[in-house]
Each structure stands twice: as C-alpha cells, then as structure tokens.
Nucleic acid binder design. Structure first.
Lengths: 109, 109
DNA sequence: TTTTCATATCGTAATATTGCGATTATATTT
DNA sequence: AAATATAATCGCAATATTACGATATGAAAA
C-alpha cells in the first residue's frame, strides 16, 4: 500500500521514525553535515556542493523543515538554513535512549 | 525517479542513511524495542504484538536483516530473532558522532 | 506419508519517494 | 518599470515502500 499504519503505533514510535527519516537519505545527511560544518548558515551553496538539481535540494530541505530539525530564515533573495537546536536535541535524546537501551547481550549469538 | 543517486555521496553518508532506515518506520522501531525488551529472542510473537499481517512483519524483518542490525537463528519450525551487537554498536557510534557534532550554536536566531 | 506449524516468498495494489525541467513567486537591482 | 537573482512549487516519470492474501518451504509431529 505504501501507506504506513501510524495509528497502530505509539506517538513515540512514530516520532522516532520521523526523526530517523531526517537521516535516512544520504542527501539529507550531507545537507545536515554541511549546515553543521559551516557555522554560518548555508543557503543555495548546498546546490553547488551537492550534485543534485536545485529543485531536488529544495525538496529535501522541505522534508527536513517538516520534521523540524532545520529551519530557514528568509533574507531575500536568499534563504538561510540552519539546524534547529531544540529538535536536534530531541533527536539526540531519542536516539541516545533507544540505542542505549540495548545492553549488548544477544541470545542467539 | 525514486532512485537515490548513491554514487554522489560518501560511503559513510550512505551507511548512515541505511542505518537510519532501520528506525525510519514505526513498525521497525517497535520490532527493535520488542527484541530488546524481551531478552529472549522473539519470533512470530512479533506478529501477535503488532497489528500487522505476518507477511508484512516478515518483510520488515528482512529489511532489518539486510541492514544487519538484527539476525535470525533458524530453530524449526521457528526463527529466533535478535539484535546483532556489532551493528547495533556501529549505529550507536554513527548516530552519536553525527548528533554530537553540532555544538548547539545556530546562526539564524 | 500425511498433517501441521511457523516463516518466507510471490504477486499485486496503493501510496511514497526521488529527481529534474519548467515555471512561479518574491524582492532587489538597474 | 524591467531585468536579475534566489528559492519554492508544479508536473511528470521512474523507482521504492508498505501492506496483505495466497502460496511455497521446511522440518517436526501424527
């Protein structure tokens, strides 16, 4: 169906899945890394750095904005993007919690 | 196109994206949480716990196996699934590194 | 050997994602 | 006002994902 049955999962599980989507495509990983590396906010420089069309980069930025992990400040004719600290922290906590909840002991070797 | 241009990204970026996919669907988050919660490996109990058809659960397990974060031990007529410690640790490191690489300072307010 | 059980795989349908060219929107510059 | 520059959106095509019923598989139990 291609349609996730979100209603049968907890809000936490759905949120983790959404946060994970921010990192679930190499282009978005690259964008996030670039936004962090250049302390200053990067804008359409992303299009130059990535070998992707402007429309494609814009679409990935839109998805990252939807998740909330970045936000853009319009500064015509440019838009300055940057990491959204509270949501980044939310992701840090969420992944830290779930990844830290496994004690390393696996039964079927 | 629906076809990711993996060749224009680094191996590290592609791997992070793949590891993130393990958590990018609530059903897979739920499966991983169940595998951790019950120290003993869960098998088709997953089908009972999740409100998803057996074929659907099996497909998610296949994806998690492809990523390498779980592995199954055939114990006819059941299959015992569990977290694969080295890959789980790889994910912990990878997400810890990227999520820890942002110092909290965001330029646009 | 036939049944039975648990799981994997197949086939199919519906929706989502990825990517890009073309166009639109918005505000500055000339 | 017209031209320019940047980024968002539209429309489209191709592939991927999600989900499930039905069937196949493989080994134990009857």
């Amino acid at each position: 169906m291609g349609l996730t049955k979100t209603e049968i999962f907890t809000a936490q599980q759905n949120r983790i899945a959404d946060l994970a989507k921010a990192f679930a495509h190499p282009a978005r990983v690259a964008i996030l890394q670039l936004l962090i590396a250049r302390k200053a906010c990067v804008c359409g420089d992303l299009v130059d750095e990535l070998e992707l069309a402007q429309a494609t980069v814009s679409q990935h930025l839109k998805e990252l904005k939807r998740i909330g992990i970045i936000h853009g400040e319009i500064n015509p004719p440019r838009v300055c993007y940057c990491i959204n600290p509270p949501v980044w922290e939310e992701a840090r906590q969420a992944f830290g919690a779930i990844l830290g909840s496994f004690d390393g002991v696996s039964c079927c070797n």
